[in-house]
Design a protein around this nucleic acid. Structure first.
Length: 431
RNA sequence: GGAGGGGUGGCUGAGUGGUUGAAAGCGGCGGUCUCGAAAACCGUUAUGGGGCGCGAGUUCCAUCGGGGGUUCGAAUCCCCCCUCCUCCGCCA
């Protein structure tokens, strides 16, 4: 959520953000109109309440003086009648005010974050600006296999769909162990950088999703619901990590608070029908290690670059070829003011594909979550929140298998993972 | 699932219908003292919103887990929900 004052003081900023994101500008008009309405009602209600409160207090005073004083008692009675009249008017206006506030809140929830000046224009993935390229496209003196071919029966999508439907799979044997080594390596790396590992809830209340900006809106189609318990399955541990400090007033000295979430993630992938259906590139369920930071607003851009540098450190140490892109305005999620993606080269697809995503949501989530800190002087302010992917059991595994494949179909294991109980090679599993 | 007891300011914790937005303590901030620090002492210290003001500010409203209700008036009484704790049952 944006600072409500912003739509009054600098509506042009909000309008520009909507324009750059390719969203209808009447979202701002709705917020402005409902804000005017709600403020005018608020004033009238406040005035009536002030009058009522004063009268009530006078009744109290009159009643205390009323012992044996018929005049005071009569006065109290008269005031009582007056307050009753006030109350009827108040009831009517309060109803209008409640409706106006609800309309305003809905309009505010519908506004996306501002867009940072350094974000490139454009609406699609292709409009992203390439910032850096690491390494070069790997070449193979043999016919390249994709991850499904390489993993053989250890990635079993047929049985996965029999059990759970399309886009579900079994990761088995050494592929499962590869994920465990990768996730442990990733977590250890993050712990080394000061992150606290967290195994968070994956079923959350609606308010956690509202707070992180996944709801309301398009997210409604993307998120699994468990209606019997009014719970939702998270698409990323970001949701539960962000909600960790929901409604809290944090100490400035404790910032930044950095967590790494280790969890299963669930995505309905509605609307992506037919795309990326092969293998585990886009599945309904996968495992992920995620970074999350609650940060002093003064330092969030620095933090954003730092999170990216950790993603790069991990990706590099895994021997992957990648490029870093600055995602275009229209391709940002509503909460993000800026987003870096690492796009890894997948030999099996012979193209760059999104591997990680790192966003600064500035105060957008913090406002919705009610997560603030008290600055050295002045009143509490929302913190800034940031998130970034560290590793996944889907795309990182694909990149590892495909990048490090050898002619016989075996996989060379990066040195950093060999410390986690893996040999120098896996497989071949193709026989 | 059953029974009982709680949720009050940054924290601990008083308060059971009328200047209680809320005692006290802790913490924070400012000061006195000190070469400096500690201790002690003094003062100060909730959040959100509306109006007015260029501004320091000022004024009004709301808020004692959340939502409804009773009442002229609710932290205080009633109802629903959330949540924490204890015990019983069941179970990984």
């Amino acid at each position: 959520m944006l600072d409500p004052r912003l739509i009054r003081s600098e509506p042009e900023l909000v309008r520009e953000a909507l324009r750059r994101r390719g969203e209808p500008e009447d979202k701002l008009d709705a917020a402005v109109a409902t804000d005017v309405e709600r403020r005018s009602l608020q004033s009238r209600v406040d005035d009536l309440r002030a009058e009522r409160n004063a009268a009530s207090e006078a009744i109290g005073v009159a009643m205390r003086g009323a012992k044996g004083d018929p005049a005071a008692a009569a006065k109290a009675e008269e005031l009582r009648t007056r307050v009753k009249e006030l109350k009827e008017e108040l009831d009517r206006l309060e109803e209008l005010l409640t409706a106006a506030n609800a309309a305003f809140d809905a309009a505010m929830l519908d506004l996306p974050n501002l867009v940072d000046a350094s974000v490139p224009d454009g609406l699609t993935e292709d409009d992203a600006e390439t910032l850096t390229v690491h390494g070069s496209v790997p070449t193979f003196p043999f016919a390249v296999r994709d991850h499904l071919e390489l993993a053989g029966r250890l990635i079993d999508m047929e049985r996965g769909s029999r059990t759970s439907g399309t886009r579900f799979g079994y990761l088995m044997g050494e592929v499962a162990l590869l994920w465990m080594a990768l996730s442990r390596y990733t977590v250890d790396t993050l712990v080394g950088h000061g992150f606290l590992p967290v195994n968070p809830p994956v079923l959350v209340r609606r308010e956690a999703l509202l707070g992180t900006g996944f709801l309301p809106g398009d997210g409604e189609q993307q998120i699994y619901k468990v209606p019997a318990d009014e719970l939702y399955l998270v698409g990323t541990s970001e949701v539960a990590l962000a909600a960790l400090h929901m409604g809290e007033l944090l100490n400035e000295a404790d910032l930044p608070l950095r967590y790494c979430g280790i969890s299963s993630c669930f995505r309905r992938e509605a609307g992506s029908g037919g795309r990326d259906t092969r293998g585990i590139f886009r599945t309904h369920q996968f495992e992920k290690v995620e970074m999350f930071s609650f940060c002093n607003p003064e330092r969030s851009w620095e933090e954003h670059d730092w999170l990216l540098s950790i993603e790069e450190e991990i990706t590099r140490s895994l021997g992957l070829h990648y490029r870093v892109v600055n995602v275009a305005a229209g391709d940002l999620g509503a909460p993000a003011a800026k987003k870096y993606d690492i796009e890894v080269w997948l030999p099996g697809q012979a193209r760059y594909r999104e591997l990680t995503s790192c966003s600064n949501t500035t105060e957008y989530q913090a406002r919705r979550l009610g997560c603030r800190y008290r600055p050295a002087s002045g009143s509490p302010r929302p913190v800034h929140t940031l998130n970034g992917t560290a590793a996944t059991s889907s795309r990182t595994i694909i990149a590892l298998l495909e990048t490090h494949q050898q002619e016989d179909g075996s996989i060379a294991v990066p040195a950093v993972l060999q410390r986690y109980g893996l040999g120098a090679t896996l497989g071949p599993f193709t026989a």
